[in-house]
């Protein structure tokens, strides 16, 4: 075992290597490792967030679907109601119209009846007068007995 200058030389080499490793090897690689760690953590957090958002979105979609269904049902119900209302209204209108037609027809009938009766009365009067004229050609003056004839005609 000879201790000599080699000892000093090796001490210097060792010191230089430690310094070199500290400056040029350890820090950059550790920095890269730290950065990668941060990046991975970030990625994992983002994935987690995405997951949550997906679940939230699904829930929201379900809710929207439910709302839409309810709305559709409501609209359908309203439409049905409206339709039956319209039918009902139409029925009422038709019934009213029919009634009115009946009423007007009856009025017409009555009017026609009255007119026919009047006409008949006129004709009867004429006929009576004619008959009376024939019977009473000689004794009765048509003009003098007009009031009697009218009276008679009115009683028919």
């Amino acid at each position: 075992m000879n201790f000599n200058l080699t000892l000093i030389g090796q001490m210097i080499s060792f010191g230089v290597f430690v310094w070199f490793t500290m400056t040029y090897v350890w820090s950059p690689i550790m920095k890269a490792l730290q950065e990668r760690k941060a990046k991975i953590a970030e990625g994992l957090a983002a994935a987690e967030r995405g997951h949550q958002e997906k679940a939230l979105g699904e829930q929201r979609a379900l809710e929207t679907l439910k709302d839409a269904k309810a709305q559709a049902a409501e609209i359908l119900g309203q439409a049905n109601k409206r339709a039956s209302e319209i039918v009902e209204e139409a029925k009422t209108d038709a019934r009213g119209e029919g009634q009115r037609l009946i009423v007007s027809a009856q009025a017409e009938i009555e009017h026609e009846t009255n007119r026919a009766r009047e006409e008949l009365r006129q004709k009867v009067a004429t006929l009576v007068i004619a008959a009376a004229e024939k019977i009473l050609k000689k004794e009765i003056d048509a003009r003098a007995h007009q009031s009697i004839i009218d009276d008679f005609a009115r009683q028919i």
């Binding site: 080699t6 080499s13 290597f17």
Partner: peptide, 27 residues
């Protein structure tokens, strides 16, 4: 004391230099 082992110095520095320059290159 004033002698130096050239073989020890050479191989230790060579090995250290190879290893740490490789590490540095990677770093």
């Amino acid at each position: 004391f004033w002698a130096i082992h050239l073989d020890t110095m050479f191989f230790s520095i060579l090995l250290g230099w190879l290893a740490f320059s490789f590490f540095r290159k990677v770093a």
